[in-house]
Simulated scan of single mutants.
Amino acid sequence: MIIGVVSDTHVGGRIKSLPKELLDGLRGVDLIIHAGDILKDFVIYELEEIAPVEAVAGNNDDYYMQHKLGVKKIINAGKFKIGITHGYGGVNALKKAMATFARDSVDCVVFGHSHAPYNERIDGVLYVNPGSPTDKRFQKQYSYALLKVDDSGISAEIKYF
C-alpha cells in the first residue's frame, strides 16, 4: 500500500490551488493523508478524485473544519496504526505530535504545522512531516511524502519539487 501524505496546503488565501506537481505525484496512491491547515474543504474533494482521504484540521482551519475532521485520528493501514495530527507549536511540532500519541499504540505519526519535512524513527515509531506543497517558508523546495506500508513495516520518503 502506498499512502500520499500532505499538510499545510493553505489553499484559499494567496494560494489558489494545489500544484500540478503534487497532484501528479499522488496519482496511483491507495490513500491520501492530509495533516491539517487545509482552509477550504474543496481541497479534500480534489484529493478524493485521486484516492480516499483521511484528514485532520490544523490551527488555521475554521471551527467547521475542526468539528468535521477533528484534530487527532488513528487509522489502520494493513496491520499497522497511523496517528494523524497537525502538531502545533512551531519548532516544537514534533514534540507536540509525540505528546498527542504518547498514550496510544501507533507505528507511525503523521504531523505538519512547521512546513519543515521530517522523516525519522524514534523509539520504534516513524514520525513523518511532509512539509508543504504550497508554502515552503524557509525550506529550499516544496514537498509532500509517500508512505510505503507492507508486511515488513512502514517507511517514508519525502518528495521534493
Rank of each mutant, 00 (worst) to 15 (best):
D107T: 03
D151R: 15
G90S: 09
A55V: 07
K96R: 05
L69N: 08
G70R: 10
H113F: 05
E48N: 09
F101E: 03
V91L: 11
K140G: 15
V110L: 03
I74A: 00
E48C: 10
A116T: 12
A93T: 01
V149W: 14
I33R: 07
G124Q: 13
H34T: 07
H86D: 00
I122Y: 10
K96M: 03
G70D: 13
E54V: 05
H113Q: 06
S114P: 11
T85F: 05
G36T: 04
K81Y: 13
F138M: 13
D37T: 02
N60T: 04
N76I: 14
K79R: 15
M65F: 06
I32D: 07
M98S: 00
L31W: 08
R121I: 10
K96N: 02
A93G: 00
G28K: 11
D41K: 13
G87Y: 01
Q139F: 14
K40R: 15
F101D: 01
V91M: 12
V56A: 05
P52K: 13
L146G: 08
V109P: 06
H86W: 02
L147H: 06
E48H: 09
A145D: 09
V43G: 09
Y144R: 10
M98Q: 01
G131K: 03
G124L: 13
K95R: 09
E46Q: 11
Y118H: 04
I38N: 02
Y118N: 01
V106N: 08
V110K: 03
I44L: 08
S132L: 05
F80V: 13
I50G: 05
K148V: 12
I122D: 07
V109C: 02
F42N: 13
R137C: 12
T85C: 14
Y64C: 11
C108M: 01
K136D: 12
K72F: 06
N119M: 06
D151K: 15
R121F: 08
S143W: 07
